[in-house]
Design a protein around this nucleic acid. Structure first.
Lengths: 291, 291
DNA sequence: CCATAATGTAATCCAGACTTACATATTGAA
DNA sequence: TTCAATATGTAAGTCTGGATTACATTATGG
């Protein structure tokens, strides 16, 4: 496409509206400008094309032969463009809000609570995609993501959902108790670790336990780690939000808590204004995360 | 058409170009702007539509699903618009240059000279429309007009072609001489006048002849007046340019000349830049008028 | 691993779009 | 015919959105 000898789009749009209404003032109202703006655009178009397009006709204007042909094309073209934009907006309306979350957060935090969101916003359908990989929101077409980390990711905005602590947990059967036993005592048990969640290592060592002295078993996912821990195969470390329900139910015992305010689950979005659905989900998430 | 929730056309065009090239810098070159301008437009579009449209992909960018659909529509729409504009320009190319002139000017000034224009510009076809009425250049689709008057017409530009004098003329047979006889002596002959050209009355009276004392015969057109004068039926007044050839040939005798610099034939155009054909015709006219 | 060629983005600048203000023109009704 | 209402025409000045500039970052290919 060669734009070099095309008049300004604003002028073409002004002329299209004027031609459609056969009335400069009506066109001006449609485009939310004054009649003078329309008149100037039309004049500049006529000068650029060296052709009269409109002439005054009583109250209003009429089209010359050339003007009628041009207006025809312009209306059609702008119509196609407007249709394209509104199709995009409509398709966005109908599509479910699409979220990607880590599997463990989905299973242990989001799923137990999501019923409340559905009750509160039955009109918003939600598509939840559990995935560990650091996906690209743009490329993969997700509206939002929930990821664990320090919130410093390039090219996206992130907002802290839950933070504060890692809890070291084990099953009451394994530990033979229902109360805290302290980090150093936990060193005697086998440690179950998730290959994909490595942030906790530094936290544990900062808290004074040398991980080289403990027996560790790697599992593929945090889900496996959690169920193995519940089954009494060892102890493990998790963000508080993932295990506080298990601890409350007594299926797990909190051995100790390791405070770290710089890490946590974040709601990650592209740096753009959120639409209505996204705002609703974000608000619900924030309220849930605070209670 | 409701433009109120349509993004800016400049942004849409920038995105369309970026999508077509899958490359912001190439789009920028096409639109003669910098890559930053394109990037900003795309960002603002994504913000306005709450949808990612492009994502970075190596050297260049790739389209998201939504982006592809939108770009499709935009390309089509802009294509239709560009086609409309270029069709107008092409149709203008092929059409003859269309001029309207007064019949007497056509017959007595333009036609004797027009062969020279055709020789000089064989590529420019010319449509000459003889008409007395004060036509509307816009409404009636003429490119240029030649009209007699003082050049003060509203809404158009006019440029003086010939001016200076009215000549009072008669046939040598009627006057029984081949040389000037003076205005007062002309009062004894019948005067032939054109119903449509009334400017000369004031000129003649200013020169000292009381028209109430002369016998006058009205004819329908200046053509009739001229041929009646040549036939010796009376004397008449014409702009010099219309009769100087007849006088040179001896078919008419110049009785006297009445200088008036404020009246003359003017080239009348709409107030806009002339295109190539128009400039060529205007230039030729001006040269002819000066010789 | 460097040279090259992209994109990303904040700060600043500027031209073109828009408004204002006033003049003129047309219509319909008193 | 005149007046009120509603148009268009256009010059002058204002202002904002689009553009440039400048610098940083990122990806590719040799």
């Amino acid at each position: 496409m060669d734009w070099s000898n095309l008049p300004s789009l604003a002028a073409l749009r002004a002329f299209e509206a004027a031609a459609r209404h056969q009335n400069l003032s009506a066109a001006a109202r449609e485009l939310n400008v004054t009649h003078a703006a329309i008149a100037q655009h039309v004049r500049s178009l006529e000068a650029e094309l060296s052709t009269p397009l409109l002439f005054r006709s009583g109250r209003g204007v009429a089209l010359t032969e050339e003007g009628r042909h041009l207006a025809q094309h312009l209306s059609e073209g702008f119509e196609v463009i407007a249709e394209g934009v509104s199709a995009l907006q409509r398709s966005k309306e109908g599509r479910p809000l699409s979220i990607t979350v880590t599997p463990s957060f989905a299973a242990n935090w989001l799923m137990p609570r999501i019923g409340g969101f559905w009750q509160k916003h039955p009109e918003i359908s939600l598509s939840i995609n559990p995935s560990v990989s650091l996906i690209d929101l743009r490329r993969d077409g997700f509206d939002m993501a929930i990821r664990f980390g320090n919130g410093q990711w390039p090219g996206v905005s992130s907002e802290l959902l839950t933070s504060g602590e890692f809890w070291v947990v084990g099953s009451p059967k394994l530990l033979n108790t229902n109360s805290k036993i302290g980090l150093s005592d936990a060193g005697v048990y086998p440690w179950l670790i998730d290959l994909h969640m490595l942030e906790w290592r530094q936290v544990v060592e900062d808290a004074g336990l040398d991980l080289n002295t403990v027996e560790m078993t790697s599992l593929e996912t945090n889900e496996l780690v959690l169920s193995a821990t519940v089954a009494g195969l060892g102890v493990s470390v998790h963000p508080r939000s993932l295990v506080e329900r298990e601890v409350a139910f007594g299926t797990l015992v909190q051995i100790t808590s390791l405070p770290r305010t710089d890490l946590g689950y974040h709601l990650v979005t592209l740096p753009r204004p959120l639409d209505a659905k996204e705002r609703a989900f974000r608000k619900w998430l924030m309220v849930e995360a605070k209670t």
